[in-house]
């Protein structure tokens, strides 16, 4: 029989450990959501790990990507990109809407599609 009931020394240590690791993960999540997001000017589109396109987000275009279960429509616009339609059941990728910041991504796990935004910079090469 435990003298102190549930809260023995071991339990307290355990609670502290769980609490601190929770705070750590929470802090990382908070930092990720609050950090400065700069505008992206390039998007990398990959399907099942294979890079299909690397586009600059400076024009309007609709890209049709054939996938396992149908076609995925990606809408490219100036400074932003979105998945317009997808044959996946959850439609989570479509609901995410337009992404326009560096580091953001749209993932359709069902089809294996991954769109990552980045900023090519400090712009090191310019074409004139």
């Amino acid at each position: 029989m435990k003298a102190r009931g549930f809260w023995s020394k071991s339990r307290i240590v355990e609670a502290c450990l769980i609490g601190t690791s929770f705070l750590l993960v929470g802090a990382v999540c908070l930092w990720l959501s609050l950090k400065d997001k700069s505008a992206a000017n390039t998007a990398d589109i990959s399907l099942k790990g294979e890079r299909l396109y690397s586009l600059t987000l400076d024009h309007q275009e609709e890209i049709d990507i054939p996938s396992d279960h149908g076609h995925i429509l990606v809408d490219v616009d100036v400074g932003k990109i979105a998945v317009k339609s997808s044959p996946c059941p959850s439609q989570y990728c479509v609901h995410q809407g337009y992404k326009s910041h560096e580091g953001e991504s749209i993932i359709c796990a069902y089809e294996g599609l991954s769109i990552t935004l980045r900023s090519v910079g400090g712009v090191e090469v310019i074409h004139v």
């Binding site: 705070l23 750590l24 802090a27 990382v28 908070l30 930092w31 609050l34 400065d36 700069s38 505008a39 000017n41 400076d58 100036v78 400074g79 560096e102 900023s119 910079g121 400090g122």
Partner: peptide, 17 residues
């Protein structure tokens, strides 16, 4: 560590179109 992460500011890059 969390405070350190928050105040981290190398590789600043603000950009817009």
């Amino acid at each position: 560590l969390s405070l350190g992460l928050f105040s981290c500011s190398h590789n600043v890059h603000h950009s817009d179109m």
